[in-house]
Amino acid sequence: MAVLLLTRSADLHETVVALCAAAGVEADVGADPSLALGSWSGADLVLVGADVAGEVTALSPPRRGGVHVVGSSVGEGVFRYAVGLGAASVVDLPEGSPWLADALADVGERASPGRVVGVVGGSGGAGATTLACALAQWHATRGPTLLVDADPLGPGVDRLLGLEGRGGVRWEGLADTVGRLGARALREGVPCEGALGVLTWSGFRRRLDVPAARRMLDAAVRGHELVVLDLARHGGPALVELVERCDDLLVVTPATVPGVAATARLVADLRCADRAGLVVRPGGLSDADAARVTGVPVVATLGEQRGLAASVDRGLGPLTRRGPLARAARDLLDAA
């Protein structure tokens, strides 16, 4: 059973069941809370009608996530019952119908959040976007993956993957929306090929703000096994927000004096040395030198890949079956 609705209100019953039907999820409606509580723990989502919220609270059901109190013109007493139930929210209908529809659309999605891997270049031209694309391509053969272009001044990850002509929502479209973003809506709305979805930009006027970044990432981790963030070096507050949410942060640097020096400054600015890993590109310095200067351990050394530019120009993306990028993607994602 997906959704448990407890209510005696015919209007509430009709409204919620219609939303469930539109979302394609099964609803079990109980008019007697004492009889319906047997399904309390097994439902993916529990909706407690404001008309029976007091009765349900008096029954002291076990605390669990995914409980919401729903009703029309709810009063202050309902909020007290919601606190007693440990409810995540009180949804006033019909105003809250769009939010509830998004929540219902997520029913049956991942029970635990997906992994978030951030990739940022320690210096300009380090190859962070190429590595981010390779990681996403590699994991997409195994499960739902979202590649997020969080660099407003970058080339556009859709172009590197040959997806620039695909229809779908871009960052500009998300910025024009408000409220909760559904995981399924995001996964099915972005340009995609197979299990790989891409969230990128549609024009040249690009700006990533914190609210949009937060809403996107909340939905992304609910709907994907892996979310790869191609991060900007100079992203302001939005960069800090996204970096804080990363399970793994990969900093790409060329093993050159200027590259490592710039990387050390970025790491110090982000205060991420304790949870970042260094991916080193060819240069005159050793891995030990790069780690010592930046204070970040080396987790991978990435050699030059022959035919990379030609593969990207042909719309195939940077990843090939064999080569440094494929090996690095496999090792980096399997390491955690």
Rank of each mutant, 00 (worst) to 15 (best):
S112K: 13
S202T: 14
H139R: 15
P98F: 06
R207T: 15
F79G: 01
T177W: 02
A88G: 12
G182S: 15
V91H: 01
A103I: 12
R207M: 05
L181K: 01
E172V: 06
R166G: 07
T145C: 01
L199G: 04
F79L: 13
R187C: 04
A136T: 14
G124Q: 05
W99R: 15
A101K: 09
T130G: 11
L160A: 10
G203H: 12
G197A: 08
R142L: 15
W171L: 06
G179N: 07
S97F: 01
L186E: 09
G86K: 09
C192M: 13
L196N: 09
V119Q: 05
A195D: 10
D158L: 08
D151T: 06
T177R: 11
E172P: 02
V90W: 05
L131M: 03
T129D: 00
E188R: 13
G127K: 12
D106M: 10
A101H: 03
L135G: 14
L161Q: 12
A132E: 09
L199D: 04
R207W: 11
L85I: 15
V157G: 08
V148P: 09
G179H: 12
R110K: 12
R142H: 13
F79H: 10
P94E: 08
T200N: 02
A185Y: 02
D149I: 03
P144I: 08
G121D: 03
V90Y: 09
A103G: 01
L146T: 12
L135E: 01
L104V: 04
L174N: 02
L196S: 07
G86H: 13
G125F: 01
G167A: 15
A126L: 10
W201P: 06
L147F: 00
V190K: 08
D149Y: 03
Q137C: 04
L93T: 04
R205K: 13
P94M: 10
F79S: 10
E164T: 07
W201I: 02
L100I: 07
T141F: 06
L174I: 01
E164V: 08
E193M: 09
C133E: 14
C133Y: 09
P144H: 13
V178M: 03
A88M: 12
E109C: 12
G194Y: 00
L147E: 00
L147D: 00
P144W: 11
A140P: 00
P98H: 02
S202M: 04
E172I: 06
G203Y: 05
G127T: 05
G124Y: 04
G125L: 00
E109S: 15
A183T: 07
V117L: 14
G156R: 07
G127I: 14
G197R: 06
S89W: 14
C192T: 11
